[in-house]
């Protein structure tokens, strides 16, 4: 504004003040309009994003006739829990939830220990071959799952003395169609090790050296000093791992043939394939399959987000 005054000296003081005020209110108006635009765009996008999902929840409480209404009714007119009770009756839901929880839970517990111990070793100990080994393992993340898939299937089929196999691993189905087959290949994960290692790198070495001088061995340092400091990273890893295995569909699809061993996602997918038109029950099942993950997400959101950015930023 100083500049404007000098350029136009003929302007009276009153005119100048008016001009300034106008400019200021213009700026405010632009800022306000910008703000409104941001809210409008963000809200519209958010509605579009949540709409299909909201519809699933809404439809799960509607009788089948109402689901087929055009225009779609977003608020259930004839609210019913019937879809849920019928899904419970037809899909042996308890067993599905139990299987999913058991598989995802065991994997998380195993990975909490194995991943963090490996991460500590890679982050804080020096030993020949460390960097080479770590780089090879990270590089292996690039290998598409389809390459490992078939041999992994054959390995599980030929586990000796399991599932009717002889000592050479022939004759039976091995670990196919078993909990072990779903769990054992995922007892550790390179991705999880990487995430924890990145976090442990930020713990000062002085802390570890001090513990060494006090006579603590590596396992004690890991267990009593480093692990308690890794709470957020361990939480993030656990949530990722649980979500991944809870949501996993492909591996159970290939491995599991017995009805009693189906996971929730597999049970739901096969239910859809078998009963293509019972949308009311399918929607109730979908809500049940999503609910545990949603609750975990809402409770531990900040760990989720932190965990993602922790691995995301390092590339």
């Amino acid at each position: 504004m100083e500049l404007a005054k000098r350029i136009q000296p003929t302007m009276t003081r009153q005119e100048q003040e008016q001009r300034d005020r106008k400019a200021a209110s213009n700026r405010q108006l632009t800022a306000l309009l910008g703000k409104i635009a941001i809210y409008v765009v963000t809200t519209t996008l958010a509605i579009i994003f949540i709409a299909p999902w909201a519809w699933m929840v809404s439809a799960s409480f509607q009788p089948i006739g109402d689901i087929f209404d055009w225009p779609p009714s977003w608020i259930p007119e004839n609210f019913t829990l019937n879809n849920y009770t019928r899904f419970f009756e037809e899909a042996n839901i308890g067993r599905l939830v139990l299987n999913s929880t058991l598989v995802a839970g065991s994997v998380v517990i195993a990975q909490l220990f194995l991943n963090s111990l490996a991460a500590y070793t890679f982050a804080k100990r020096r030993f020949p071959g460390r960097n080479l080994l770590f780089v090879i393992m990270l590089g292996a993340l690039m290998i598409p799952g389809q390459v490992n898939l078939i041999p992994a299937y054959l390995i599980l089929q030929h586990v000796p003395l399991a599932g009717g196999n002889d000592i050479l691993g022939n004759g039976g189905h091995g670990w196919l169609d078993s909990y072990a087959g779903l769990i054992v290949p995922s007892l550790s994960s390179i991705y999880g090790i990487f995430l924890l290692r990145q976090y442990m790198k930020s713990i000062p070495d002085d802390l570890i050296d001090a513990a060494k001088i006090d006579g603590a061995g590596h396992f004690r340092i890991y267990w009593q000093i480093v692990l308690p400091l890794c709470g957020p990273a361990l939480a993030a890893m656990s949530i990722f791992t649980f979500t991944y295995h809870w949501n996993d569909f492909f591996w159970p699809l290939i491995l599991i043939t017995s009805e009693s061993l189906r996971t929730l996602q597999l049970g739901l997918a096969l239910f859809v394939v078998r009963n293509r038109t019972v949308w009311d029950i399918v929607m109730a099942g979908s809500v049940i399959a999503t609910l545990p993950i949603l609750v975990i997400f809402l409770l531990f959101q900040r760990y989720f987000i932190r965990g993602i950015s922790l691995t995301g930023m390092r590339g």
């Binding site: 949501n247 929607m283 999503t290």
Partner: peptide
């Protein structure tokens, strides 16, 4: 973020 945590099986059904 909710669509991202929704199981793919469920998303595909929706």
């Amino acid at each position: 973020y909710i669509p991202n945590i929704t199981p793919l099986v469920v998303s595909a059904i929706i």
